[in-house]
Nucleic acid binder design. Structure first.
Lengths: 241, 241
DNA sequence: TGCTATCTGATAGCCCCACTATCTATGATG
DNA sequence: CATCATAGATAGTGGGGCTATCAGATAGCA
């Protein structure tokens, strides 16, 4: 109670979150943030929940790269109290698949040189799911996004990238398991959905960053020293394994 | 040699890639795509390279979510022939860190409740890098992005998420190793940078999708049946399909 | 009681981005 | 020769995420 439990006006809410007053009002208008409790026709008070919510919004926006519209839907799922946990998680998750909007229609309807790449990709996805024994459902947007990504790889001439998919799937499974265990260990039931959202979105950012860091290291070991002396002559092994 | 080695005009280029003629012109103006070779004052011919480049652009845009500006820089790095491999990779990679622009300044300059979270996050990042023995360099944007992500987690009340970072790092390392091995095995030297770009961006999309799929499975196992009576039992509610 | 800083709620505007439309002059094509 | 496609240029469009401005009301202090 000592901390910040007192109600504040919009000015201090702004100061405590680093979000400008007009922007806070904008979020309220957009339905991302509940309005303050009116204490008089032109005064409203905001509580700790508003601070948390604002931080959530900024995290999803800045770090997670979600759009305001996506955040609105995610938040609607978070706030709806009458929804079985499992369904909530599913619906929240469905909003967290970016990069997909235009991707599915994209080059697919072009005169297709690597024709049937959609079908091939879809098949590969089903293989992986089966191999891993994952339970999922048809039409899962994550699956569609994966199909789109594999298809894009194919069209860009990296169809063989599918070779390493098993490594990816194995890694993804381990990470997902760790995510869920973390949630089970640390999160109260009423915060479940919010935590899953946060973990999903920010977890992506975390993993991407780590992968970049690991790339630098791996690339350094593989290609780094080969051009130290004079020129690049070293063992790039462009073909053999 | 039936394939597509012949030069074509813009109309067919458009048909073969699914990108509209005005949009192709736009990409040329924006420096993403080299202009066609003029055969007369108002006729130009485009080659297979243009087709490939266009597909690359669409993949980065649609699946990778890069901006036109980012793609321009990436492509400049790809096209510059006089650059040591290692530097090229580094510079290309530096362009592939999204979600970071506003993130670093964000809530940091607010009156900070979990104060010093930036310093804590930075320390944690250095710990991980040291523990993994990764070689990197100060100011690596991937590191900064990771700091921002951890800081956002902290501010949203998930500081303990750092507990699972080791799992993430381990997974990222394995994936990165697989990426580099794939590149070494399959990619000719002159295509190295392009492949790294593609692999980095589309690899993110692939991993994210896989992680979502794995989440569904893990969440199903953990929370799926606990509310079975009368509600969504069985192998996950088949929403679509 | 007056004075000023702050607030609510509303409307309008801004800037960036990824295109898209339109136009002219020219040449390709059957 | 008639029609179509094209290059190159300029202008416009729609969406997204804010930002500016305003009127009228209140807070809080001298």
């Amino acid at each position: 109670m000592g901390k910040g439990e007192r109600a504040v006006r919009i000015g201090e809410l702004s100061r405590r979150t680093g979000v400008s007053v007009p922007t806070i009002k904008f979020y309220v208008r957009e339905g991302l943030l509940p309005a303050g409790r009116l204490t008089s026709p032109n005064q409203a008070s905001y509580e700790e929940a508003h601070v948390r919510r604002l931080r959530l919004i900024r995290a999803l926006l800045d770090v997670g790269g979600l759009s305001v519209a996506a955040i609105r839907e995610v938040i609607a799922a978070i706030d709806d109290p009458e929804r079985p946990v499992h369904k909530m998680l599913g619906e929240a998750a469905a909003r967290l698949v970016p990069r997909y909007e235009r991707a599915s229609g994209g080059a697919a309807r072009a005169e297709n040189p690597a024709e049937g790449s959609a079908a091939v990709a879809r098949e590969r996805v089903e293989e992986i799911i089966a191999a891993r024994g994952w339970r999922t459902y048809r039409g899962n947007p994550a699956g569609e996004a994966l199909v789109a990504a594999l298809q894009a790889l194919e069209e860009v001439g990296h169809g063989r990238f599918a070779e390493v998919l098993d490594v990816y799937a194995e890694a993804a499974e381990k990470v997902a398991r760790a995510d869920l265990e973390y949630v089970a260990r640390n999160v109260a039931r009423e915060d479940l959905v919010e935590s899953v959202v946060v973990g999903t979105v920010l977890g992506d950012a975390v993993f991407e960053s780590l992968r970049r860091l690991a790339h630098v290291d791996a690339s350094d070991r593989l290609f780094g020293r080969e051009e130290a002396p004079g020129e690049a002559t070293g063992p790039v092994a462009p073909d053999a394994g």
